[in-house]
Nucleic acid binder design. Sequence first.
DNA 1: GTCTATAGGAAGATAGAC
DNA 2: GTCTATCTTCCTATAGAC
Lengths: 198, 198
Amino acid sequence: MSELSHRQKSILEAATRVIARRGVRGLRVEELSAEAGVSTALLYYHFGDRANLLRRTLEFISDRADRYTGEGVSADADPCAALERTLLLELQDDPDVRENSTAWGELRASAVFEPELQDQLRTSTEQWVRDIAELVERTRACSATPAASHPADTAERLTALVEGLSERWLSGSITLERARHLLRDAIAAEVGETLHTG
Amino acid sequence: MSELSHRQKSILEAATRVIARRGVRGLRVEELSAEAGVSTALLYYHFGDRANLLRRTLEFISDRADRYTGEGVSADADPCAALERTLLLELQDDPDVRENSTAWGELRASAVFEPELQDQLRTSTEQWVRDIAELVERTRACSATPAASHPADTAERLTALVEGLSERWLSGSITLERARHLLRDAIAAEVGETLHTG
DNA sequence: GTCTATAGGAAGATAGAC
DNA sequence: GTCTATCTTCCTATAGAC
């Protein structure tokens, strides 16, 4: 919400990288200051204390995720392909995606124990679900089978599945390819077989 | 794997409770010793150091989860109801369930950053998926619609969905009732409509 | 095996100069 | 706004008696 100075932004970007590398649990103020190329004192000058720094970072991450999803969605011409592409975007062997997914997973995991993060998390999640629900609705136009659920339900299931698969991938329980395969089939099942998979 | 003394077991139970309350990151050796009703020195006597204590606790949690699922599955006469009941077992407003789910979520989240936990996690997850796959297979007998996916795929999707929904529930992003509703519909969609849902 | 007491160190936070 | 140097707190881990 509040405007970020260039310096503050670069600190939050560094914090995102450190969280993706060590987790919220593993973030050391000193390691963050090294990553950002500033002194620890400066972190305290800008953010007060570690807890607040974390709060701001998680806010930063979820804002960035909103922007990310929002752009990809509206720019696409074919809604049927767009849904699949948008969701599969979260399961990619790309450093940025991995960083964002890991940091997001940490946000969720931390929120379980820190109620002050829950509002932030819920708001961001709901926004994501709404974006996907809109895509689902548009997808119905080019589906071969009739809709079984409300778009909101479908969207919430698919996004929750993405989170579950993403966590399994990041924690080494399944391969990326298998996660993608499972997600693709789930999408096909939820919105019906589309032209290119028929 | 190694035999646990009564004392060790009660310490690991206490550790599970503390992790469910504070998270892995928030577990303080002193708080654990108070919870277990012993001195901190005794924890070190039995478990060496904090990291090993954590490792053993997470192993304990996943062993307990295996036993939990295994029992419920085999004892049920009606496979169609059993699948739904077994999966919904994870989404209940019961202190024990909440404790186990929270601790399990922490195990998963920690494994992202600690490779030495990943084997443990993968093994336990695969066991769970296999148990559910077996139930899915049996469920096919009383399903009204033809099977769309391999039982292994269905089981892996449903369990990943359970984890995703559980995390959203525990982090306050959705209500328990909504999570249960979404899961029920997903099960119906995956194994086909069964008799009792018409 | 279990406790009390405490050493020792890591990490968060601040003081004060520039 | 930013740094260097340092303080303080908290927490893991151990020593030694019983």
